[in-house]
Design a protein around this nucleic acid. Sequence first.
DNA 1: GATGCTTACGATACCCGTAAAGATA
DNA 2: TATCTTTACGGGTATCGTAAGCATC
Lengths: 314, 314
Amino acid sequence: MNLQQLRIVQEAVRRRFNLTEVAAALYTSQSGVSKHLIDLEDELGVQLFMRRGKRLTGLTEPGRELSPMVDRLLLELGNIRRLADHFTQRDEGTLRIGTTHTQARYALPKIIAAFQADYPRVSLLLHQGAPAEIVAMLLADEVDIGVATEALAAEAQLASYAFYRWHHAVVVPRDHPLTRLESLSLADLAAYPLVTYHAGFTGRSRVDAAFVRAGLSHRVVLSALDSDVLKAYVELGLGIGVIAPTAFDTRRDSGLALLPADHLFEENTTVVAVRRDRFLRGYARDFLCRCCPDAAAQTHMSTAAMPPVETAGA
Amino acid sequence: MNLQQLRIVQEAVRRRFNLTEVAAALYTSQSGVSKHLIDLEDELGVQLFMRRGKRLTGLTEPGRELSPMVDRLLLELGNIRRLADHFTQRDEGTLRIGTTHTQARYALPKIIAAFQADYPRVSLLLHQGAPAEIVAMLLADEVDIGVATEALAAEAQLASYAFYRWHHAVVVPRDHPLTRLESLSLADLAAYPLVTYHAGFTGRSRVDAAFVRAGLSHRVVLSALDSDVLKAYVELGLGIGVIAPTAFDTRRDSGLALLPADHLFEENTTVVAVRRDRFLRGYARDFLCRCCPDAAAQTHMSTAAMPPVETAGA
DNA sequence: GATGCTTACGATACCCGTAAAGATA
DNA sequence: TATCTTTACGGGTATCGTAAGCATC
C-alpha cells in the first residue's frame, strides 16, 4: 500500500471512475493507474470497484466505506505539506476563496485589497458559486476558505465564523411611492411585485419567512442570484427589490433609493468557513482573522493530543 | 514523501528519538531509518528533529506540529487495513482489551467466555493497567478497547459507553461489630481504619468525596489497586474495606461480610471506551455491544469522523 | 470506430541492507 | 570504550512510461 495508490483511489472516485482522466489529473500513465488499483485490491484482498467487463462503474460496499478513510488520510497528507510550506515559504503561495457574487463584489474587495498589499507574493483565486457549491468546494478541498450567508454554518465538517450581520433592505426607484412612507411594513411591500434572490442565496429564506409569519402572501416576480441583476430590474420598474444593503452604492445607484427594513426581516449572518480538519497556512489564517476577528482563537493547529511520548514503551 | 517515512517519524517520537530502537521496531536497518528522516526533512524543507551533534534529542516546533498530523494519517492507514481485514477475515484476528484488575477479574469473565465461544478464531489479549495507562494505551493504538471506571470518560478523543453502574460497598470480617447495625452511616465507617483503592482507581475519588462532604475525616490505613489484595487485608483485621461489590464472591469470601452502602457513596459508572476515529472490526464492535447495548448506534463507520472539540458559528 | 482498461516489457529510480567511518556519552 | 548516527556502496525491486492487445460503447 502506498500513497500514490490512495491518491488514485480518491481521484478515481472524483472522476467517476474514468481512469484515463485520473491519469491525466495525476500526471501519470493510465496503465500505471490501472495497475495500482489492481495491486491495491490484491493487497487488501477486497474488490473496491464494481466493473462491467473492463470498465469501472462504481464502488463496491467495501469501497464505499474505504473512500472516506482515504479522503481523510490524504487530507492529513495535505496538512503535512501545507505545514511544511507554512514554515519554508512563509508568505508565498495561493489562497483559494469560494464565495458568492454578492460577497465577491461588495463585501470582500476592501479586505482583499488590504490583504494583497500585505502579502504581495500570495496569489488569490476567487471561485464563484452558489452557497451549496461553496460547501462542496470546501469539502473537496478545492478552496481554502468559503464566504457566504447560507449553507456554510449548517455543515458540521466546517468551522464557520461570523463575518458581518445585516438585515435585508428594500430598493425602489428614486420616485417610488414607498419612499414617502415614514416607515415600511410588510403589508406595504406585499402590495408590490418583488424582485429578490434565488432560493438558497443571500438569505432568501429569511425574506419568505417574514411574509409567511405575518400571514401575507408575496409575489416574487423575478429572482436572480446577484444583486446587480436585481437592481437593474428594479430600475426598470419590474418590482421592488429586497436585497442585501451591502450591495447598494449611493453614488453608483443614484437612480434608486434604499429603504431600511431592519424591523421587517430577521437578521442574517454572513460567515467565513474553513474545513475543520484542514491546516491553514499563516496567511490564510490571517485572511480569516481579518474577516472574523473572533476566529483568532481557533486555528485548528494541534487539536489532537500528542500521544504521550512518555508512557509508550517499557 | 512516503508512508514508511511517516511511520519512522511516529516511531521515532514514541521511542524518544533512538533510531536504533526505531529500526528494530519497524524491522528495518537503522541506516535506512536515518536516511529516510533526512530525506523527509529535505523534501519538506524543514528540520523536524532537534539534534545535539549527531544524536536526535527532540522535536523542533514544526516537528511538534507535524507529529499529531502523522499520527492521524497513520491511524487512518490502520483503519484502511482493518476495514480490509473486516471484509476478508470476518471473524478472525486479535482483540486487545485494556482493563483494570477489578474488571478483568470480576466483570469481564462472563462476557469474555461467551465472546470466545462465538468467535473461536479471535485471540484475546488482556492488557492490565491503571486507568490512566489504559487511556494512554488507547491513544497509542496499543489496545482496541478499554474498560475502567476512571479516566476514560474524561478523554475527548475517546467515545465511552456505560457498562454498568454501581456503588461502593463495605467489607468487614464476618463477626465485625458493624455487621450488627441496621444501616451504616459514614460516621460509623470513619471510626475504623479504612482499606480501599489507590487514588485514580475504581472510584476512589468518590470514596474520599463522600467523607469530605460529610465533614468527616477518614483514615486510609492501606490502599491497593486490586480488590483481592484489599480483601486479604480486611480478613487480616487491618481495617474495614470499601470496595466495588462486583469483587465480592459470597462463596469464596466466606470469611467476610458485604455491607451495602449505596446510600453513602455516589454512584460509579464503569465504562467501555474506544478511540473515536478508529475503525472497529466486526467482532470488536460486537464485543463493545455485548458490554454496552446502547453502543449499537455509534460504530464510527462512514460517519465523517467528528474532529475533536471546538465549535464556532452557531 | 472511438474510447477506455489491461498486459507486456524495458529503463529508471528508489529502497534496503552491509559495512565502514564519524560523533557522542 | 560503547553506543549511536551518518555516509558510502551495491544488489534487488518497484514504479513508470511506451506500446500493443482487448473489451466496451
